[in-house]
Amino acid sequence: MQGTAPGEPLPRRDESAVVASLQAGDRDVFRSLVEELNPGLTRMARRYVPEALAAEIVQETWMAVVTSIGGFEQRSALKTWIYRIMLNKVRTLAKREAKVVPFTSVGPSGDAHRPAVDADRLVHPDFGHGYWPEAPPRWDMLPAERLESREIAASIRSAIAALPEAQREVLTLRDVEGWTGPEVCEILGISAVNQRVLLHRGRTTLRAMLEEELR
């Protein structure tokens, strides 16, 4: 997952051959592209709208890919282009449906400056503010069944759903789908610094939730 150092220009694998085959209507190449990207696209869409709607949006996305591949000029990676089509559709829909989709508006927002650890947790009796009074709980001591339980996985999924939108997008692409930092910056059109701030907020929110859960 590490690979390229985030912030560096994204090395683009040569996709000209793939794009040319798609533009020529090669069904096998199209099938492998769909097989590669459809699960991730569907999971991402489900972060915005309920499952049935997500499936519809992804189908519409592929239809848009098929009808506009002829004009695709490779100014971005193929994957980025396809994800952007899906994100445009799903964001528009999520906004329109905001009143009936429960999770889009739930959760902390505007918390970009919230610290990774609550300030009152970091008060040492001798060193004062900013230092752990005692180490946080050691999760490496917990039984694997506890950490890797279905309940924990479900808690993580609902905590991701409750994150502010920008954090949810970055965290999903980086930590769920395993994309690199530069890929996420390209697809969401954000800077490397912003990408890491959002990722850090998302991760530390999930960590705090897990700490409560595993107490």
Binding site: R31, E35, R43, A55, Q59, V176, R203, L206
Partner: peptide, 17 residues
């Protein structure tokens, strides 16, 4: 947290639409 997040990925997704 990062490992558990990647493992929380739902697998009930169709490969083809």
């Amino acid at each position: 947290t990062i490992t558990l997040t990647s493992e929380s990925k739902t697998t009930t997704v169709d490969v083809l639409p």
